[in-house]
Simulated assay, not measured.
Amino acid sequence: MKRITLAAVDYGLAFGVDRAIRDLLSAGRLSAVACLAASDLWSREYRPLQEVAEAVGGHALIGLNLVLSDPNLPPQSERWQTTFGARFRSPAWYARRALTGLLPDEVIQAELEAQIARFTSFWAGPPEFVSLRNGLMRHRPLARLVIAALKAQGVTPQPLLIYPHADGWEARRFARFAARAGLTTLPCGPRLPDLEEEAALQAALRLHFDGLPDRAVVVCRPGEADDRLRRLEPRSDIRIREVQRRVLASQTFFNTLAEKDVFLY
């Protein structure tokens, strides 16, 4: 039996997204949820998620998706706001500065620590895993700052680290890097396809989990349209979210898992 970590990674983005994630988690169709503690919704949406997580008896991992590059989410630290203002920078900005060694390490670490503290203060516990939104964990200087922020905040037990989808060599190299800091990683497979037709997604899922390593993380983004989400995302992205929600909740998807001998771990 293959174990797959099916993860929704944007809890806190919008009410419709949060409802869809909670419903799927309650039905046993997700095995991990990453929360956006940088969202203004986190302070009110954490409790409904906590209730569902308690009801499923620890079936799913609850983690933290750290944010450094989302225009729709605000920085949490005074240090960042004083230095750069009320918006994050683009992924390309980090890529250039990571390559040249010009990242403002202290400012970034302060922001990461603020988000970790915001998660733990409401959740009353540590995240079970940590990811970095928009694939920024690929940049080793940023990964080091994530680890430094976790240690500075005294997060125990140490969370799993989620590395973006990569080939086996790159993922193993990152796993060795994390192990030197005392952390464990989970491999990450390709996220669910961005398809706007249910039949097409159901067909794609029959092959999607083939060849993935044990416990591989597969990212999904289910959701339901609401006013906030309509302001944040184009209609095509919302249709993709709604299709994923319906497919993941369906009996057909459940049958596919059983046929392929896949266990949502």
Rank of each mutant, 00 (worst) to 15 (best):
L68R: 04
R87I: 05
L160Y: 09
F15C: 06
G63F: 04
I4F: 08
A38Y: 04
P91Q: 12
G28I: 10
R140W: 01
A98K: 02
A27M: 13
L13P: 03
R228E: 11
L201N: 13
V247C: 07
E45H: 14
F88N: 03
Q158F: 10
A114N: 14
W93L: 07
L24C: 13
V219I: 13
R191V: 04
L36G: 06
R173Q: 15
L264Y: 07
R79W: 07
V107N: 11
A14Y: 12
A143G: 13
A249T: 07
L142F: 03
A152Y: 03
W93V: 09
W123T: 09
D10K: 03
A92V: 10
I162A: 07
T185E: 02
A14E: 09
A152V: 05
Q115F: 02
K151I: 04
R144M: 04
W123M: 11
V9P: 02
L248Y: 03
S69Y: 12
A95T: 08
E259Y: 02
G182P: 07
Y94V: 04
G168A: 14
D105V: 12
F177P: 03
R22T: 15
H59I: 03
L205R: 10
V67M: 04
T82L: 10
R47K: 11
V56T: 14
A216E: 07
A149W: 07
F15D: 10
L183Y: 15
D210C: 06
L102M: 10
A149P: 09
R118G: 01
L132H: 00
V155A: 04
E54Q: 14
E113L: 06
R172L: 12
S236K: 11
R144P: 03
A249G: 15
G189H: 01
A175Q: 04
A175H: 09
M1K: 05
V107W: 01
L257R: 06
R44N: 08
G58Y: 13
P159G: 07
R206I: 00
D226L: 09
R138G: 02
S43L: 14
D23V: 10
D210W: 11
F253G: 11
L195R: 08
S121W: 11
A34M: 10
R191E: 12
E242F: 07
E54A: 15
T120N: 05
P48I: 00
M1R: 06
R176G: 02
C220Y: 01
M1D: 00
I116K: 11
T82R: 13
E197V: 12
Y163W: 15
G28K: 04
A216V: 04
L142I: 01
R22A: 13
R29F: 06
T256I: 15
A225V: 11
R231S: 14
L61P: 08
V262Y: 01
V218D: 10
R228G: 06
R176P: 01
L6F: 02
A216K: 10
A92D: 10
A20R: 04
L212C: 02
G189Q: 02
L212G: 05
L61H: 08
A117F: 05
A7H: 13
H139L: 15
P126Y: 00
Y265K: 01
S39P: 13
G182Y: 12
A148F: 05
A178N: 02
S39E: 03
V155L: 06
L102E: 13
P91I: 01
A258N: 11
P75L: 03
S236G: 04
T252Y: 00
G135K: 00
F254C: 08
A175M: 00
C220T: 15
A199F: 04
P190M: 08
I21V: 15
F177Y: 12
T82F: 07
